[in-house]
Design a protein around this nucleic acid. Structure first.
Lengths: 334, 334
DNA sequence: TACTTTCATCGAAGCGGTTCGACGAAGCGG
DNA sequence: CCGCTTCGTCGAACCGCTTCGATGAAAGTA
């Protein structure tokens, strides 16, 4: 393997000159520059990442920590992973993809060994044990998901409370008086998946303010429980005119269940949900829904992270960025 | 940040002694070992990954290269990513997750800068441009997917030809005389997704051998084209008694289409497919299918890769491992 | 013409580890 | 009691790159 030393010898200059030619941090004469470039091409030289990292204390890579809970719906997950990965690459960073079961230990290992310049956390819970370790790390951290304590980290998430209000307003405007809400599975709540109660509580409050009746249920995460759950909920609330689904697995399964029951949307029942356009395309979901924007969230997190990496001193105070929800009307409400 | 030098000072020994205490490559007295461990705990010392990589030429991480083609069905993809990631971590390796559009350039960048000890390629096509670069790299490479030229790399894939035969045999055994096969989208074939024609050609040949009629079609990758495609195929072949689906997006959409048409499985139509159990669970698919085993494939690839990393000389010649298909009978054929 | 800048380049130190050879002390067989 | 291993430890070299300060040559200034 060619080293910078080899390049220097072939080009007839010193190592430092090659380094400066590479980085452009000092001026180099045209002739020398050309000889160096020729030598590099000749030898097929590439900078050794480890050596550079050691010398600069920068690895040009970020960690992406994702946890695969079995009650999580995988297809949705991938959208976040992709957007983080793509955004990172565009900014010149590689992505260390970490799926350790013990997320906290992983944060510690990755950050304290200096493997990365920053960390993005996915699936953040209310009292996420990874947060403390990440705050204590030298590297900046960003999260997708709103934890209870936002101190010292840049936080990005959809505004779930506002999303719920938007949906309730929409239904209220159409004259609905009794609605059913299917939340994420109970496990998600127990684990501290705050988006579950942020959405539910806001929905309940807003509906209450309008004098609407709202019945809340947990969704299921595995088939065939998902289907039987939907059926029993619909059986229990025959007078409800609208269904709000805040649960990827449930909404994906809904079309088949409704068709089997002979329920027409929106004539017999209005349906509103919350998912990303891509997700809807995969599952061919025809429902009016709040756009969950995984692509935007992942990108924002990475961009902010890179900003901090490049300017550790002043990239401003920690940010909590809740993106404003948008309702995409697909005609599933009446 | 504490360095090994700091540890050595606190413990009252030399740097090399600390290093040996850490690696266990030379014997250390009980007393010294204890002092060193105390110092490490005290200082919260962790080995600097870059420095270690530089000294040992081992990074303890592998690259996972995945391409997100828009005609690829994301939910299936994630299963491979997960299994590679999990297997790597169990073996002590971190995963550099690379999604560059230009896969070949990425292979070059990653390998020649020595960022990883090995590379796993996903979505390998027949004449994959990444393969040449990977063969030329110092690091060993493994693929999930069977390319045309298997020279110098460890290859893992499902035996698609055998899968097709298994399915045709199964249908023939049940007395079917006319079947329809929906293959992956045409783009996949054009791109060189060999699994498409490996399956189709074997199916056609075997069916021909039995005197069965078989009609082959391309699937679609995007809704709503998927649905209309299925419908028009079924309209065109009313006399076919069995449907073989080799396409994730199509099989996921099938239940709804069949219900809408009022087609009962298996009374009106037998259906056989090819997907993983997890995939089937996500989509609640009730079809008899060949198990595609993404978890097994990812794990095998990583294990073989690590074997080569640890024993560059003799881990034997390059391996082509096509795993034997298994048909899971879920009662969707008659 | 003499003096200060600017330009292009070099040498050496340092980043934080690993590893090889050396060496004194202790343990061993004869 | 002597010479030979074995054990535990140390110092130094090295991995490949960046960067600081120095230096000679060329260019600009007065």
């Amino acid at each position: 393997m060619a080293t910078i030393e080899d390049v220097a010898r072939v080009a007839g200059v010193s190592r430092s000159t090659v380094s400066y030619a590479l980085s452009g941090k000092r001026s180099i004469s045209r002739a020398t520059q050309d000889r160096i470039e020729a030598a590099i091409a000749d030898l097929g030289f590439t900078v050794n990442a480890g050596a550079r990292a050691l010398a600069t204390s920068q690895t040009m890579s970020i960690a992406l920590l994702s946890q695969f809970h079995q009650d999580e719906f995988a297809p949705a997950m991938l959208q976040y992973i992709r957007s983080v990965s793509d955004a990172a690459r565009e900014l010149g960073y590689d992505v260390l993809f970490v799926t350790d079961t013990d997320g906290a230990a992983a944060v510690k290992r990755i950050t304290s060994s200096n493997m990365v310049d920053g960390v993005v956390l996915l699936d953040v819970t209310h009292a996420d044990p990874r947060l403390g370790l990440l705050r204590a790390a030298r590297q900046p951290g960003a999260t997708v998901g709103l934890p209870g304590d936002v101190e010292g980290l840049d936080i990005f998430d959809l505004d779930f409370a506002e999303s719920a209000r938007l949906i309730i307003d929409h239904l209220y405007g159409l004259g609905h008086k009794e609605v059913v809400l299917i939340s994420p599975p109970e496990h998600v709540f127990e684990r501290g998946g705050a988006y579950g109660w942020r959405f539910r509580d806001a929905a309940v409050e807003r509906a209450g303010g309008y004098g609407m009746r709202i019945h809340t249920y947990y969704g299921e995460s595995q088939q065939p429980a998902i289907g039987t759950n939907i059926n029993s909920i619909l059986d229990a609330r025959p007078t409800a005119t609208a269904l709000v689904v805040h649960n990827d697995a449930t909404i994906a399964a809904l079309p088949l269940v409704l068709m089997a029951r002979g329920v027409k949307v929106p004539e017999d029942l209005s349906v509103v949900s919350l998912y990303s356009t891509d997700f809807g395309r995969i599952f061919s979901l025809p429902y009016t829904a709040v756009e969950s924007s995984p692509d935007v969230l992942g990108r924002l997190a990475v961009e902010q992270l890179v900003r901090r990496i490049n300017d550790p001193g002043h990239a401003g105070p920690a940010v909590v960025h809740l993106i404003a929800p948008e309702l995409r009307d697909r005609g599933s409400t009446a």
